[in-house]
Simulated scan of single mutants.
Amino acid sequence: MSRLKEINPRLIRRKWRKMQFADAFKPILNGTVTLNHRNMKCLKDSYKSSIWKLEIKSGHTSMPVILKISKQLRKPRPESTVEKNIYRRARKVLQPFMPRIYLTKRNINGRDLWVFMEYVEPVKGQVEYNPDHFDRIIPTLARLHAATMNEKFLRHKEMFAGWLPRFDSEEMLAERVRLNKATLQHLDEAMHIPKLKAIVQPYYSLLRNILNKGPGYFPEVSQAGLSIVHGDLHTANMACDNVKELVWDVKFIDWEGAKFAPCWFDLVNLIGVFLAYRREWKDEEEEITKRCVQLYADEMRKNGVVFKTDPMKLYQMAYLKRVLERGLYLQLNWAVTGKKEAKLLRVYLEKIRVLEKKIGLH
């Protein structure tokens, strides 16, 4: 395999001319389009992607554009394939919930995928993000879930077949079984590491008892509805051009974690994970959660989805299910191996004890 060329302004300018990318923007700017080579900024570059903010012009009109280049990997990661296909194949369904996709082109620099999309200002950096902002995000999230729930997703199943992970698939069930066994193993390993034993021991018997019953906790969460979920909702993955207004036009970006899964998982990420990191809101956590859960249920009802089970109970079950089936594994794995700091381990352990006592396990 020939060595891929470094992604830099010169390469982008050359490919812009050679591939005649300007033609895709003629209908938008109503005229001959040029790339302003003096205004090209790399926003992020990693082993898997390179993201650039470009400026295109036609006469006296100009507009910013994002170029996201998904790089060719020697060992393609499943989540990388998911995001590529979100941009290439799923626009018909997901376009209202992500920046407008102007053009996608494969095999530009080796087997890289180049995606030109609308520039929407990231939420991060625009506001001092706090729980009040959940109210601005939840209506859009509810529309995404309602638009792709159950039979509405199945109408487009051929569009997503073969690449979008499905929570109800044999593959994902097998993965949950694997993680369950690995969690039990890490739990025992933690008991042989003095500093971790001090954290884990008060919860050890409870955790082993619960994990030996898993996975597959709380079938009510899946029965409440499966939809396309974003999977990684935090400020860096949300964009909005009107954050000074009461009603936000939110767009979700970075769809690597997308899957067809219980809709409540996104709310657990949006609210539960945020509050787990931001302990300064601990005293208000219950009030914040109740308000957001009720708003989500109300917004889903507006979009034709009515939950038969009490929404707060569904949220609590989804939280516990998500932690037991994945979150606890990650925290224990990082703690035992030292790969990362297990910042949420103590919070998750206490949450498991509190929620298990409150709603039981079945």
Score class of each variant (00 low, 15 high):
Arg326Thr: 09
Leu332Ile: 07
Thr309Glu: 10
Gln331Ser: 06
Tyr329His: 15
Leu344Ala: 04
Val306Leu: 05
Lys340Trp: 07
Arg326Met: 06
Leu328Tyr: 07
Met300Phe: 03
Met300His: 02
Tyr315Ala: 11
Phe307Gln: 14
Lys302Met: 03
Gln316Phe: 10
Glu341Asp: 14
Glu341Gln: 10
Val305Gly: 03
Thr337His: 14
Val336Trp: 11
Val336His: 08
Leu344Tyr: 06
Val323Tyr: 02
Leu320Lys: 02
Leu345Arg: 12
Asn303Glu: 15
Tyr329Val: 02
Tyr315Asn: 08
Lys302Tyr: 00
Gly338Val: 10
Lys340Thr: 06
Val306Trp: 02
Lys340Gly: 03
Lys313Asn: 08
Trp334Arg: 08
Lys313Phe: 00
Lys313Pro: 02
Thr309Pro: 03
Tyr319Asp: 09
Lys308Pro: 00
Leu324Thr: 02
Leu344Cys: 07
Lys343Cys: 04
Lys313Tyr: 02
Leu314Ala: 14
Arg326Val: 09
Asn333Asp: 13
Lys343Glu: 13
Arg326Gly: 11
Arg322Thr: 05
Tyr319Ile: 00
Arg322Met: 11
Ala335Cys: 09
Lys302Arg: 13
Val306Thr: 13
Phe307Thr: 06
Trp334Gln: 06
Arg322Tyr: 15
Glu299Asp: 10
Gln316Tyr: 12
Lys343Phe: 10
Pro311Gly: 10
Lys308Tyr: 07
Leu328Val: 03
Glu341Gly: 12
Val323Pro: 01
Gln316Gly: 05
Leu344Thr: 10
Arg326Asp: 03
Gly327His: 09
Tyr319Arg: 11
Asn333Lys: 04
Leu345Ser: 02
Leu344Phe: 11
Gly327Cys: 13
Gly338Tyr: 12
Gln316Trp: 12
Val305Thr: 05
Ala335Lys: 05
Met317Ile: 03
Ala335His: 08
Val336Lys: 04
Gln331Ala: 09
Asp310Lys: 08
Leu328Ala: 07
Met300Glu: 11
Met300Ala: 05
Leu320Gln: 09
Lys321Ser: 09
Leu330Gln: 12
Met317Thr: 04
Val306Asn: 04
Lys313His: 02
Arg326Asn: 06
Lys339Gln: 14
Leu345Pro: 01
Gly327Glu: 08
Leu330Cys: 11
Met300Pro: 01
Lys339Asp: 15
Val305Ala: 06
Met312Tyr: 15
Gly304Arg: 08
Glu299Gly: 08
Glu341Pro: 01
Leu314Glu: 11
Ala342Tyr: 02
Leu332Glu: 02
Arg326Pro: 00
Leu324Ile: 08
Lys302Asp: 09
Glu299Tyr: 04
Pro311Ile: 01
Phe307Glu: 10
Tyr315Met: 07
Lys308Glu: 15
Tyr315Ile: 13
Val336Asn: 10
Gly304Met: 09
Lys339Pro: 00
Met317Phe: 12
Val336Gly: 09
Leu330Pro: 00
Asp310Pro: 04
Lys321Gln: 14
Pro311Cys: 05
Glu341Ala: 05
Thr309Met: 15
Asn333Leu: 04
Gln331Pro: 01
Gly327Arg: 13
Thr309Tyr: 06
Gln316Asn: 13
Leu320Glu: 04
Leu320Trp: 03
Met312Glu: 14
Ala318Asp: 09
Ala342Trp: 01
Glu325Pro: 10
Val323Lys: 01
Thr309Cys: 12
Gln316Met: 14
Leu330Thr: 09
Lys339Cys: 06
Met300Gln: 04
Ala318Met: 07
Gly338Thr: 14
Val336Asp: 14
Thr309Trp: 05
Gly327Phe: 11
Gln316Leu: 15
Val305Glu: 03
Lys343Ser: 11
Met317Tyr: 07
Gln331Cys: 03
